[in-house]
Simulated assay, not measured.
Amino acid sequence: MKHIVGKAVIAAVIASFAVEAGATEWNVSVWGKRRAFTEGIEKLAELVEEKTNGEFTMNVSYGGLSKNRENLDGISIGAFEMAQFCAGYHRDKNPSITVLELPFLGVKNLEQEVAVSNAVYSHPAVEKDLARWNAKLLMPSPMPQYNIVGTGEPRDTLEKFDGMRVRATGGIGQAFEAVGAVPTSVTATEAYNSMESGVVDTVAFAQHAHLSYRTIDIADWWTEDLNPGTVNCPVVVNIDAYNDLPDDQRKALDESVPEAIDFYVANYGKLLEKWDAILKEKDVKRVSFSDDEIAKFRKTAADPIREQWITDMTAQGLPAQELYDLVQKTLEEQSKTN
């Protein structure tokens, strides 16, 4: 009897080690708090765990692993296996994907943002650019066009932007600078305090961030149709960690990405549907711009910034014109199918 029990115990221990050996646990570095912007990652973690019967799990950390501007560095040294970052936080580290942050690209919805991001992410020059950081681009975190909130008298003409201190990064910051504003790239987590203390007059965000970082709580007005562009914030994985995954777990991860993005887009759509009620509840005035003002903004910002980007990136050895043309071609194809 003891002999049988002993064999059973040994078998259980061996089985336990076998399960442990096949288990994979990834740490994921994001920032802020759980919000529409991070729901794609949360859904991805849920799907992967479900498809692998719990053998592949992800621990999503909101600021506990790294600062948001240092997530790409953390990926490069393997401090964690997955992370989210925004191209505009460190344009010199990821120059290829900054094409997606150029102002007035013409992206009209989240589906188009997903399409152009995926097209650019899969370009060999972009893969090579991010591989310098041992990073593999996994999926986008698509966001709608940015608009600004501010306090005091609404700034409803380009002339009123002159001297305006605005929290804006990447191409959006360049666009505002082109019309006389003074952009600053304080991080999202610093935006509220910067606005409250008067360090900036206005803050440019997508809707979810105005809510998550509470800039909408101290805003008097919001520009509903300025739409100068958006930021591109990919989710990346450490290449070594990705390659080390067992085949079935890697397959589960890859196959879960489209589902996670679909969930993200649908979830964000619900937030956009509630946006009007949120503005009314917080007594925030909606500011509109005339067609002439929008056209003036586009003419002043879009063409020169795009041409300068192409010149600068070409000088760095990137196929800049090809990347820009890829974005426009993808948008054209999307417009035909939508």
Rank of each mutant, 00 (worst) to 15 (best):
M1D: 08
I4K: 07
I4S: 06
I10A: 06
I10C: 05
A11T: 11
A21M: 10
T24G: 06
V28K: 00
V30L: 05
W31Y: 15
W31V: 01
R34W: 00
G40S: 14
E49M: 01
E50R: 12
S61Q: 07
L65E: 05
L65Q: 10
N71R: 08
G74C: 13
A83R: 09
Q84R: 08
H90N: 12
S96L: 06
E101S: 00
P103Y: 01
V107L: 01
L110Y: 09
Q112M: 13
A115T: 14
Y121E: 02
A125E: 09
L130D: 01
L138A: 13
S141A: 05
I148C: 10
T151S: 12
T151Q: 12
G152L: 06
G152N: 06
T157V: 07
F161T: 04
D162Q: 13
V166G: 04
G171N: 00
A175S: 07
E177N: 09
E177L: 06
A181F: 03
V182T: 13
P183F: 03
S185I: 08
S185H: 12
A188W: 01
Y192W: 02
N193D: 04
V200P: 01
V200K: 02
A204P: 00
H210T: 06
D220L: 04
W221D: 11
W222M: 00
T223N: 11
V231L: 03
C233T: 04
I239A: 11
I239D: 09
Y242E: 02
D244L: 03
K251H: 07
D254M: 09
E255K: 10
Y264T: 03
Y264I: 01
N267A: 13
K280W: 01
K280F: 02
E281Q: 06
K285M: 02
F289Q: 05
F289C: 02
S290R: 08
E293I: 06
F297C: 05
F297A: 04
A302S: 15
E307Y: 01
T311Y: 08
T311R: 10
M313P: 00
Q316P: 03
G317N: 06
G317C: 13
A320R: 02
D325Q: 14
V327I: 15
T330G: 15
L331P: 10
E332D: 11
K336P: 10
T337E: 12
